[in-house]
């Protein structure tokens, strides 16, 4: 254990420049989202109907719209900055929800085996064989849209991936001598799972979670794009783009600004995730 920790520390010292760049980018986007009220030049929901669909750099009544306005004359820069909150928030929270649900179920299945295992793992099979986006569209039809419901929908449709990993890892770990020992010493299942099993399977779970984080951002924007996401007048990058799609010829910036942001965000997450996987998973390590 300590030997590999040492190796990781060694490798961390040789961080490639691309990873540093995307980390800075990611940090910048997160900061933008957190400090949106300070960064955004205007109220993201304030409409000026006389300044609709204006190009970047347009000035109206002493207000300059640096990246233009949308179809209700709202400042696109401010909306994009606030949109980061929704896109990141939904993705982060739904990853947390699905990790918690998925990992708990996976550990239970791997620890107790028997019927618990059968039921949980068959449920995983079922969930995995319904396309996630269809399941999400179906669930939105029942729950209705909105920020928290979106988190719930995405979180509850994506947990099986974590369960599979947590299950397989728990099976391996549960045979380790020190865990057998603490079981004999009379420690309860919950205690063993959380204190001994969880820390040992955290690495692989982290790999899944980073990959899922990127996917969640795309799923949220996909749902918003279909008109099933966040409630107006709030907006996520996906929903701004879905509005802008109609104005592609007249006002390309409505799609372009959040589109570029969305791409940079997912790109950063993916590059970072790849690097993290190379560090944590010796099998795919190649450099």
């Amino acid at each position: 254990m300590t030997a590999s920790a040492h190796a990781i520390r060694q490798r961390l010292r040789r961080v490639p420049p691309s990873v540093i760049v995307v980390s800075v980018l990611l940090a910048a986007i997160v900061l933008l989202a957190v400090f949106a009220p300070l960064v955004a030049p205007a109220d993201p929901n304030n409409q000026t109907l006389l300044a609709r669909l204006k190009a970047p750099g347009f000035t109206y009544r002493g207000v300059t719209y640096w990246v233009g306005t949308d179809d209700l004359g709202r400042d696109l820069l401010s909306r994009t900055v606030y949109g980061a909150r929704v896109s990141l928030g939904v993705a982060a929270l739904s990853v947390i929800v699905s990790t918690m649900v998925g990992v708990s179920l996976g550990m239970l299945a791997g620890w107790f085996r028997g019927w618990t295992e059968t039921i949980i793992m068959r449920l995983v099979d079922i969930m995995m064989s319904i396309p996630a986006i269809l399941l999400a569209v179906l669930t939105v039809a029942v729950l209705g849209p909105g920020f928290l419901k979106l988190v719930l929908v995405l979180g509850l449709t994506r947990w099986p991936r974590y369960t599979r990993v947590a299950y397989a890892q728990t099976l391996q770990v549960s045979n380790l001598p020190f865990i057998k020992a603490s079981e004999l010493a009379g420690a309860g299942a919950v205690r063993i799972l959380f204190h001994h099993v969880l820390p040992n399977i955290a690495g692989p779970i982290l790999i899944v979670a980073t990959a899922e984080f990127g996917l969640m951002i795309l799923m949220e924007s996909g749902l918003s794009f279909l008109g099933l996401g966040i409630q107006p007048p709030s907006a996520s990058w996906g929903s701004i783009m879905s509005v802008g799609r109609q104005y592609l010829e007249r006002a390309w910036w409505i799609v372009a600004v959040p589109g570029v942001c969305l791409f940079l965000l997912v790109f950063s997450v993916n590059v970072l995730g790849d690097w993290l996987r190379d560090q944590l998973d010796p099998r795919s390590r190649s450099r």
């Binding site: 409409q47 209705g144 409630q231 107006p232 007048p233």
Partner: peptide, 21 residues
């Protein structure tokens, strides 16, 4: 819908949009 929301908000009400299928 959003434009009407803002107009009504401006006279002192608090309009929230619920968009469903």
């Amino acid at each position: 819908v959003e434009a009407i929301q803002q107009m009504v908000n401006e006279v002192g009400l608090n309009v929230t949009i619920s968009s469903s299928d």
